Amino acid sequence: MTEEDWAQVWPFWDEIVQAGETYAYPLDLTSEQARALWTVPPPGQTVVLEEDGTILGSATMGPNRPGRGSHVGTASFMVSGAARGKGVGRRLGEHVVQWHRDAGFRAIQFNAVVETNEAAVHLWQALGFRIIGTVPEAFDSRAHGLVGLHVMLLPLVEG
């Protein structure tokens, strides 16, 4: 993702956060504050999926924890409303998994997949992730009230 890309990412990023169904970011962030939270510095990376000059989605990836936890990766994803249901999340997910493999990570851990976000849960399971635990009532969904957050894991090496 380049600095110029943010102008297209910000509208759907903000729409997703304001919807209150998948991310626990503060609702009053400015564009610059949001960009600072979303843009991952090296050794991580933030990418966009663009077609014909239109950005359809964005993903962040990198170590889940610093230091002694840096061998396990993590990622976050946002897809524009106009592009949902068109395979953008899957393409970003496949890219993120391969990026982690190529970078030598041993696993990818998603720390907080909202259990009512069924499309995301099914996608991650289709890509090989499994739910290893659920924190009950850890997310305050605008539509569903207090719901659980899944911790999901994809081992990248055996053993």
Rank of each mutant, 00 (worst) to 15 (best):
S58F: 00
I108Q: 02
V88R: 02
P63H: 11
Q8M: 08
P43E: 13
V147F: 09
R84C: 11
L49W: 05
M78W: 01
T74V: 09
V147A: 04
F139R: 01
G87H: 02
V135R: 15
A138F: 02
G93R: 04
A34P: 04
E115D: 12
D52V: 10
G69N: 07
H100I: 10
V114C: 00
I131H: 07
D14E: 14
Q125M: 08
D14S: 13
S141I: 05
G81A: 15
E32D: 15
S80A: 15
T116N: 10
A7P: 00
L92Q: 00
R65N: 08
G20M: 15
R130L: 06
V113K: 00
P66C: 04
R90Q: 14
L154E: 03
G104Y: 02
L27Y: 10
V88E: 04
V114S: 03
V151Y: 08
R130A: 12
N64Q: 10
W13K: 13
P63A: 14
L149A: 02
M152K: 05
S141N: 15
T30A: 14
G57S: 05
G89P: 01
A36R: 14
P11L: 05
G159H: 02
V157C: 07
A59G: 04
P155K: 12
R65Q: 15
G20L: 15
H95V: 09
Q8W: 07
V157I: 10
V135C: 06
G53W: 02
E32Q: 15
R65V: 14
G159S: 05
L49R: 00
R65L: 13
A24P: 10
A112K: 02
E50I: 04
G53T: 07
M1Q: 02
Y23E: 11
E15L: 10
L92F: 02
A24T: 08
E137C: 01
T30L: 05
G128Q: 12
S70T: 00
Q8L: 10
A36N: 07
L146R: 13
I132T: 15
E137Q: 13
G128H: 04
F110T: 01
D102Y: 04
R84K: 13
